[in-house]
């Protein structure tokens, strides 16, 4: 099948309105590795005939890294401009694969005039599973394999989303193993608070290496993440430990897409 990703501009020109907007985010748009997450999620949306659209070239940074870095001006410039576009298209519901965009649009946009139902793709996928649209497959690629899930701070502690990603992983019929620091005590990958965009401060170790060591100690062959920034940090960590041939880091959407044979 040929996969489609209609833009809001096109749909509007045809007089159509999507049910849900897929907010791709900067990482999902520009980062080579994270583009695969975007593609995997869109394949799932296509397969399940979900009426969605993307902003395409009209999308812009949510302003999240600027806000966390302390640049409130730049954040609000981005936020208010984005809200004008989203409100212009009368968007009601947004799904995104980026916990940072998710947190900002869900929690920080309303005061600035942007009121939307914002869902992270882990919760979106869990809802599809609950509705029976995504099912456990017999003898899938990950059956019986050890998988460990790394909690994203901006899903977990920031928004209390701990169980949805784990429920999504259950569909793989894999063996879920937890790291010692998980859920409310999950260790950050090191990217948040705009650390992604600067060198770490002097210290004895990089945070992503500390976290990767913990993930590797579970002997899982797959580290599942739900955030493009965690993806980068953990992939770098796995490379740092020279385990990239044995251990893979996948996003939830990629795992589901693979399991569905997409």
């Amino acid at each position: 099948m040929t996969y489609q990703a209609p833009t809001l501009a096109d749909l509007t020109a045809q007089g159509k309105q999507p049910e849900v907007l897929f907010w791709v985010g900067c990482a999902g748009s520009f980062d080579e590795r994270a583009k695969s997450i975007t593609v995997a999620f869109i394949k799932i949306l296509n397969k399940l005939n979900i009426n969605f659209a993307v902003l395409g070239p009209e999308e812009a940074c949510s302003g999240e890294p600027a806000k966390r870095a302390g640049n409130e001006f730049l954040f609000q410039m981005q936020a208010i401009s984005n809200i004008q576009i989203l409100n212009g298209y009368q968007i009601k519901k947004i799904v995104t694969a980026c916990p940072h965009c998710f947190n900002t649009i869900k929690n920080e946009y309303p005061e600035l005039g942007g009121y939307y139902e914002v869902i992270h793709h882990s919760v979106f996928l869990q809802q599809l599973i609950d509705e029976g649209k995504i099912k456990m497959r017999e003898g899938g690629e990950f059956k019986g394999k050890k998988i460990t899930y790394h909690d994203s701070c901006y899903l977990g502690r920031a928004n209390n989303i701990y169980e949805a990603p784990r429920k999504v992983l259950e569909v793989l019929d894999a063996q879920l193993v937890e790291m010692k620091r998980c859920r409310t005590t999950g260790l950050c990958c090191g990217a948040g608070g705009a650390q992604m965009f600067k060198e770490p401060e002097p210290g004895s170790k990089d945070i992503n290496v500390e976290r990767t060591e913990e993930a590797l100690s579970t002997e899982a062959k797959v580290i599942a993440s739900a955030c493009p920034f965690c993806m980068t940090m953990l992939s770098d960590g796995v490379k740092n430990k020279e385990k990239e041939n044995e251990v893979k880091v996948y996003d939830l959407a990629e795992l589901i897409a693979k399991n569905e044979g997409l």
Partner: peptide, 11 residues
Amino acid sequence: MACTTCNACVE
């Protein structure tokens, strides 16, 4: 500058 805003301290 070292903070990752991860909320672990708050939690």
